[in-house]
């Protein structure tokens, strides 16, 4: 991935040491790139949350001019698989409401930063080159623009273990594509490929496999001459389709309750999925 980067991309050192991702700063276009290489499983584990929070703080506080923020992943065919199922299943078995609640709150804060442009008018882009599932898809949807590789799968599989995506899924999909699309995705658990999302209004731009970085820059370059107007449009979007933290927090508390009320068979499935993810990661 580094090879594809422009020569004036440097490590975004303000974020300090990160283990689950690498952040870059591209000075010519004023972009901060957050490229995830999450392990052992490409999910939102607590370590990744730590790193993302560190980068976000740095973006918020940095003296560097930043017009754009792009998140992506260097894990092949994978943007993010979402919530940490291992953490979930353990917390549910041990009835640790506080653990689940705290985890969910951190995720909500991340979404709010992305949606709010870090309080400094930064335009955020998700560069989805592989699967974005559950919380991974929710995170991608929280960016102002979602650019997706044509073969990328995006969806909410939580229903398969009798849960629901409680960190912004309904709010973001509902506002962008309407109630029917939101419920179709949440209720079915299906993960269609990107052209479908482009069709319904969830993905803003599609690109061919391997062209992600180029597509992101092209997208940004075409925005540059009209940045002033685009920023105003985004502010208007917030005014017309506002997503308030309270709404997200309320839904998340419901999510915690729902999680704690899943049945044993559902927890077992969650655990099996973790094993499967581990196996895949090892392969």
């Amino acid at each position: 991935m580094t090879d594809a980067f422009h020569k004036d991309c440097q490590i975004f050192t303000e974020a300090g040491h990160t283990s689950q991702l690498t952040a870059y700063y591209e000075s010519s276009r004023r972009i901060v790139w957050l490229m995830m290489h999450t392990h052992p499983r490409p999910s939102f584990n607590p370590a990744l949350l730590d790193d993302v929070e560190a980068v976000f703080r740095a973006v918020r506080d940095s003296k560097l001019p930043i017009d754009f923020f792009i998140s992506g992943s260097t894990v092949p065919h994978m943007y993010n698989t979402g919530g940490d199922l291992s953490l979930f299943s353990q917390a549910i078995r041990q009835r640790q409401r506080a653990v689940l609640s705290s985890y969910a709150t951190r995720c909500i804060d991340i979404l709010c930063h992305l949606d709010g442009g870090f309080g400094r008018n930064v335009i955020t882009l998700a560069l989805v080159e592989g699967s974005a599932l559950g919380g991974g898809f929710e995170a991608a949807l929280a960016h102002h623009f979602l650019l997706a590789q044509r073969d990328a799968k995006m969806g909410f599989p939580e229903i398969s273990f009798n849960l629901f995506p409680g960190m912004g899924a309904y709010s973001f999909v509902g506002r962008k594509a309407g109630q029917r699309v939101a419920e179709q995705l949440i209720a079915s658990g299906e993960a269609p490929r990107a052209p479908w999302h482009h069709e319904v209004g969830l993905a803003d731009q599609l690109f061919e496999p391997g062209e992600g970085v180029m597509a992101a820059r092209t997208f940004i370059d075409t925005l540059q001459p009209r940045l002033n107007g685009i920023r105003a449009m985004l502010r208007t979007r917030h005014r017309v389709f506002p997503i308030h933290r309270e709404e997200l927090m309320d839904i998340t508390q419901d999510w915690v309750d729902t999680a704690l009320s899943v049945e044993d068979k559902d927890i077992a499935y969650m655990e099996r999925l973790v094993q499967l993810q581990n196996k895949r990661a090892r392969a």
């Binding site: 597509a215 925005l223 540059q224 001459p225």
Partner: peptide, 17 residues
Amino acid sequence: DSNALYLSDADDRMIVA
């Protein structure tokens, strides 16, 4: 490093990508 084609006037004042 991008497929954005910039069009501009002679003074580079008016730019469209």
